[in-house]
Design a protein around this nucleic acid. Structure first.
Length: 203
DNA sequence: CGTCTTTGACCGGCGC
DNA sequence: GCGCCGGTCAAAGACG
């Protein structure tokens, strides 16, 4: 696990701004985007910025899947998927790229966590569990329990490292949410983006 | 009693 | 056409 906090830092939201349809959390007025590409924040600054209520789990933003054929970490797979999309679905104003994300409506990331269910501000109902061919671990299927909202997510343990949980969101929430801001940073060595924490906003 | 999880069955897509 | 596989359904049970 590379050290998070070095290099550019980004904020992104996998449901609202992350899928580009609605900005659940408008940027701070008049200040531009404090977390846009090029900003340099230390991990300490991150900690200060996140404040109380932040989950300090170290999350590894592994991949964004444009379709189900994508396999996180697959050798030869186009890295730009992983490296480019995450900042572009960001909290900041990258509307065109965010729209592209919204068009496919999918985002996946890998999380180092003992818990399989990550608190993301939404209420989910489990509707299926399936063992998949390429993984010894079962895959769990969840649907947003809000009436009329068809957002789904799939959760499974990383087949290569059971310490990691792979979560994939699909769809766009059509309702207001308390939401979660994900704080991410790029590891300059690998180019990967790492979520350094999440911030649960008050409803 | 309402909500959620569990779990086997079912279905559709896809490759051979 | 057939079998495999991933995704979803739905009945039953658990739980608060």
């Amino acid at each position: 696990m590379a050290v998070a906090g070095a290099g550019a830092a980004y904020r992104f939201h996998p449901h609202g701004a992350g899928f580009g349809r609605s900005m659940a959390f408008p940027p701070p007025p008049g200040s531009g985007c404090p977390y846009s590409s090029g900003a340099s924040l230390s991990s300490a600054a991150f900690g200060a910025a996140t404040g109380p209520g932040v989950l300090q789990q170290e999350l590894d933003v592994l991949d964004y899947l444009s379709d189900d054929g994508g396999v996180p970490g697959t050798a030869g797979a186009p890295l730009p998927v992983e490296a480019a999309v995450v900042p572009d679905v960001g909290y900041c104003d990258h509307t065109s790229r965010a729209a592209a994300v919204a068009a496919s409506g999918k985002i996946a990331f890998r999380t180092r966590s003992e818990e399989e269910i990550l608190e993301d501000g939404y209420k989910w109902r489990k509707y299926g569990k399936k063992s998949v061919k390429n993984s010894p671990n079962p895959r769990n299927y969840y649907r947003c329990s809000t009436e009329g909202c068809s957002v789904k997510k799939r959760v499974e343990r990383d087949k290569d490292d059971a310490n990691y949980v792979v979560t994939m969101y699909e769809g766009v929430h059509n309702h207001a949410s308390p939401g979660t801001i994900y704080y991410a940073a790029q590891d300059p060595a690998s180019g990967r983006f790492f979520v350094t924490g999440t911030h649960q906003l008050a409803p």
